[in-house]
Design a protein around this nucleic acid. Structure first.
Length: 397
RNA sequence: GGGCAGGUACCCAAGUGGCCAAAGGGGGCUGACUGUAAAUCAGCUGGCUAAGCCUUCGGUGGUUCAAAUCCGCCCCUGCCCA
């Protein structure tokens, strides 16, 4: 297995056209790899990391990455997989988001070997004539082949003309930069293929399509910030470890395959043991969590996060670092006020509920009385549920 | 431009004069249990100075003792016709 074969490993979903791409790779030519950046959601999670790791591999083979800042397409919002239109972003938001994105992109990919191009470089000069020329190369039937568009249409949901143009714009990017390969998740298949078609239509060599699988969220649903089931690249080690431990058992295999860097042979062994029941799934999950933290924060952080997890969740001890809540004075304070003030409850009503349900502890003693009043002493620990803690400290005048 | 059907809480969705802070599901939270923040089961899930009060059902103005529910106008969406 040479370095080129390693490009086509277990984290690849589909390559169109595989033989063509292999030929390009072996030709020794320096290739231009396109990746579109969607500045409407700048936060990168470990699902994105699958594709980014691939890009780094290509970089190591000496190829050129071109990162397209989709400042025009972001204003539309990628309709793929969406059942409702999104509100348009302002130019400033796009700028800000793009910066955040590129910082996180850097965690995995070598920035110095990445060229950044903005869509406005070409779309800023677009005239209506150009729009006609572009849109005349796609038919409604082609667009309706896109499952998202078809479903929206069939279910009678709103679908704007502007959204219909999204694939065409993304396709034109490939023309503008003369991409040899475009990268994306499986949800990008349609858009990337549109680029391939458009290039051919204009007499250019068509790009190859390199697709990585979409990683489901920790709960098995689509990984999305709004579900709160992501593991972000910027998550601190403890949180990353904990989130990895919270993936449901059903997702374990997929995560091991796509996210961990455990070697194929060993992974096969782990699968057998899981199937035979000779290993505790929890321990495999710990191995996975460790591996994930290691990739993004290093071995030392991974070991520490693991120790912390064992301490807090398995032995139910206090975490090593607890947020501090400063009290203005030493006046006794109603527990409800304290919970809200320290951000442990969103409202008084919620604080009451938490107490009634037995979820509140002060210095490890359950508080049952809604009207309880406590003396704020330095070092008093207030705990809500399993995971929320606060340590009281009096502010020195 | 005309006709018809819609807009309900974080999301989906019931409710068509008082019994509505509003069914049900999802999500979230808490508890029990455990093998972990997995799985399963149970409870909770607008706010407040809290057995009472206040705000919410696209917007606004009415009718009524009483409106998510009835009426007028406006905004938004879909379907059919042009």
């Amino acid at each position: 297995m040479d370095t080129i074969d390693r490009i086509f490993d277990r984290t690849v979903a589909e390559v169109i056209v595989r033989e063509e791409l292999e030929q390009k790779l072996r030709s020794g030519r320096k290739l231009r790899l396109k990746l579109g950046l969607d500045p409407s959601k700048p936060n990168l999670h470990i699902g994105h990391a699958i594709g980014l790791r691939k890009l780094r591999q290509f970089q190591e083979l000496g190829h050129q990455i071109v990162l397209i800042v989709g400042d025009w397409t972001a204003r539309i919002g990628d309709p793929s997989g969406r059942d409702a239109s999104r509100t348009m972003l302002s130019a400033e938001e796009v700028q800000r988001n793009a910066e955040t994105y590129m910082q996180q992109f850097n965690i995995v990919v070598d920035r110095s070997r990445t060229k950044v191009r903005w869509q406005s470089e070409w779309f800023g000069k677009f005239t209506l004539t150009d729009v006609f020329d572009l849109t005349s190369r796609f038919t409604m039937a082609q667009m309706m082949a896109h499952e998202t568009f078809r479903k929206r249409w069939e279910e009678g949901r709103p679908l704007t003309l502007m959204e219909l143009m999204y694939p065409a714009l993304q396709a034109y990017d490939s023309v503008a930069i003369e991409a040899d390969i475009e990268f994306g998740g499986m949800d990008q298949k349609f858009n990337i293929l549109a680029g391939r078609d458009l290039q051919s239509s204009l007499g250019l060599p068509p790009q190859d399509v390199f697709l990585v699988p979409l990683l489901p969220g920790t709960d098995g649903r689509k990984m999305s910030k709004s579900f709160g089931n992501t593991i972000d690249l910027t998550d601190p080690p403890d949180q990353m470890y904990g989130k990895a431990m919270s993936i449901s058992d059903a997702m374990l295999d997929e995560y091991l395959t796509l996210v961990s860097e455990i070697a194929d042979a060993e992974l096969e062994e782990i699968r057998h043991e899981l199937a035979r029941g000779t290993v505790n799934p929890r321990d495999v999950k710990m191995r996975l969590a460790h591996d994930i933290v290691r990739q993004f924060h290093g071995e030392k952080a991974a070991r520490e996060a693991e120790a912390e997890f064992v301490r807090v969740f398995q032995q139910r001890e206090l975490p090593s670092e607890i947020p501090v809540y400063e009290c203005k004075d030493d006046q006794p304070i109603a527990i409800i006020k304290l919970l809200v003030g320290a951000g442990l409850a969103k409202s008084t009503s919620e604080a009451r509920r938490l107490i009634t349900q037995g979820g509140v502890r002060v210095n490890d003693e359950k508080v049952q009385d809604i009207s309880a009043v406590i003396e704020p002493r330095d070092g008093t620990i207030v705990r809500v549920g399993r995971r929320r803690f606060v340590e009281i400290k009096r502010r020195d005048q």
